[in-house]
Nucleic acid binder design. Sequence first.
DNA 1: TCCCGGGGTTGAAATGTTTCAATATTTTGT
DNA 2: ACAAAATATTGAAACATTTCAACCCCGGGA
Lengths: 376, 376
Amino acid sequence: MSDTDKPGEISASRPRPRTNPRRTPEAAQSGAAGRRRLSMVDVAAHAGVSIGTVSNVLNRPELVAEPTLLRVREAIKTLGFVPSAPARQLRAGTSRSVGIVVRDIGNPFFTEVLPGIEARLSQEQLLLVVCSSGDSLEKEAHHLQTLEQHRVAGILITPAGDDVGHLVELHRRGIGIVLLDRLGAGSQLCTAAVDNVRGGELAGRHLLSLGHRRIGFLNGPSIVRQCSDRRQGLFRAIRDAGLDPEDVVTEVSLPALTAQGGETGLDELLARTRPTALFCVNDMVALGALRGLERRGIAVPDEMAVMGYDDVEFAALLSPSLTSVRQPKHQLGQAAAELLLTDSRGDANHWHQEIVFQPELVVRASTSALPRSRDH
Amino acid sequence: MSDTDKPGEISASRPRPRTNPRRTPEAAQSGAAGRRRLSMVDVAAHAGVSIGTVSNVLNRPELVAEPTLLRVREAIKTLGFVPSAPARQLRAGTSRSVGIVVRDIGNPFFTEVLPGIEARLSQEQLLLVVCSSGDSLEKEAHHLQTLEQHRVAGILITPAGDDVGHLVELHRRGIGIVLLDRLGAGSQLCTAAVDNVRGGELAGRHLLSLGHRRIGFLNGPSIVRQCSDRRQGLFRAIRDAGLDPEDVVTEVSLPALTAQGGETGLDELLARTRPTALFCVNDMVALGALRGLERRGIAVPDEMAVMGYDDVEFAALLSPSLTSVRQPKHQLGQAAAELLLTDSRGDANHWHQEIVFQPELVVRASTSALPRSRDH
DNA sequence: TCCCGGGGTTGAAATGTTTCAATATTTTGT
DNA sequence: ACAAAATATTGAAACATTTCAACCCCGGGA
């Protein structure tokens, strides 16, 4: 310990005697006044070793002799010492945590992706900090700023907006970044995603094959990439069938991709037109739409076919069971985590990878062929 | 880097050669070697002030003269300086983040409670770290340890196990703790919860009033407090009706409170007996049970009434719509956050509060009166 | 002229780790 | 028995911030 410091002597020897230790080592030891958290020096004192050795016990036990090891571990246990992550991190420069910024934590899609991510990250002893942006650019920016301040090793993000410039900038400053479920920045950032254009196309083909020619589309704001991608796929399917998307689709842009948003979006749609089929940009929106349709007494699928997107866990058991586009969520999560790990290892010049999974159509009871009577 | 160190010279000239600046200010300025993150010294150099002043600009701008303030802010902006949370935290001893440990992030109940919590905490500029224990005591312990290492200001937790001793201990070490949705430790810790006994009772009364006398109960492990509380309420309702719970209830204890768990639990139940009603300890379990019943071709509610618990968002739209017990989730979240804020302010001797909300029965299509033909 | 007060700024200590060169101790080889 | 090598431990610097006593400068009052 520094109890060899005789203050008088020191202040005599130095020009500016600023040394005023708030509490003497003895005070710290006796723990009388008490509430200081213990640190490695306490452990070291208790075990009769230096703090360097304590550090070695914690991080490189193979360097420490058996008896010392036991003694120090004993001290740690009896004292109840818990190392300080901030201090560790300050010294190391790098932290053992990564952040994930999702658009809406209330959407089961994300919570179903999460386990895949967590599984991989906890193997590496990484702490996952979950933030939800609620599709607000300000909130997203705030979360990113906080995460950067915390010097997280990396960030998984489904950006709320269209522009990824700020993320590229963040990456340039040394933080690993992986875009989750958001294609289209392949050359600049790593990405793990499901092909949303393809998914939209699957949905479109399905509805067309059932004979539908007037399709309502409850979509999100077009700056959300998933939304514009799915629309693009839908339109492609329609064009491939020799039709004009403008004639077939009535699109409503929802402010929020929630059940509530879906329900009010339905009202707006029905005030404009009465399609025979409804494509909802995700299952939560479809949930709200179904609720609205039930309220209005419009039968599904007889009077209106409805399909969702994501195939979340409850989709199969809705009334009626919901046709949807399934995404390999667990794999997506795992792949994203894997990418983040390599990206934040900071091999500055590794290639940005774009991992793309393929979606899959799942047909259930909520979509059926258009009855001839209502064919046009 | 430390090439300015001529060890021989220094160790010769000074008794204690502590000063070896790794990089000269010029080196920092030129940024040639590059990849060091910038710190307040860079800002200070750029603005021509001391780091103390930079700190003041950041934390107590009212102490700084106008022109200096502007100059420093300018420097911060042009340099793109981002303060280091770990360093700040190390010095301050306290952090701006709190943790929440939930049992299962995949359960919409939790994600529906979350917004209430976040709303309150982000007002205080606090970062919320979400962890999921998956009902594993080891995982929970690991999360708690990590959070303690990070010196979070407080922890919201729905404990996986029955014992809260370790949490009390944690609290004693100065971390704010609030139990979420887990009554019964009122004297030791703050709690925000919904009365689960009452909820179980509501469910029991409802099923009994419909004439059911053989009730299957898909419950979780009894060490999970919510589960034992709901059972207790169910049993109370049965006794109040002058019946013996042993005769009425067949209980299956699920390892996991998920849809998958519910589905396999149903198999186990039906292998033992064939009740007329099913009480599922939460809506996810009910989801799985419904899936299993559909697979077996057992009609709900005609051949078997089913009810869940939590009234999550999708419950109203399942096929058939699910009778459930509603909990005021948003309020619960807000109250919990509020408690945590007062608890972690560390007024050591404040009373531990227990805030209890009342649940509410929501009757839907999945439960109906027992047909006389099947009365026993 | 001197002293006082006060706003602005500075310098250095302190926070709890990790790292690593230097030293102390033990073992091995000859 | 001695040098060399291997092993174990130590001491102090460094990480980026906050805090606070000390200092400087300037104007005003006695």
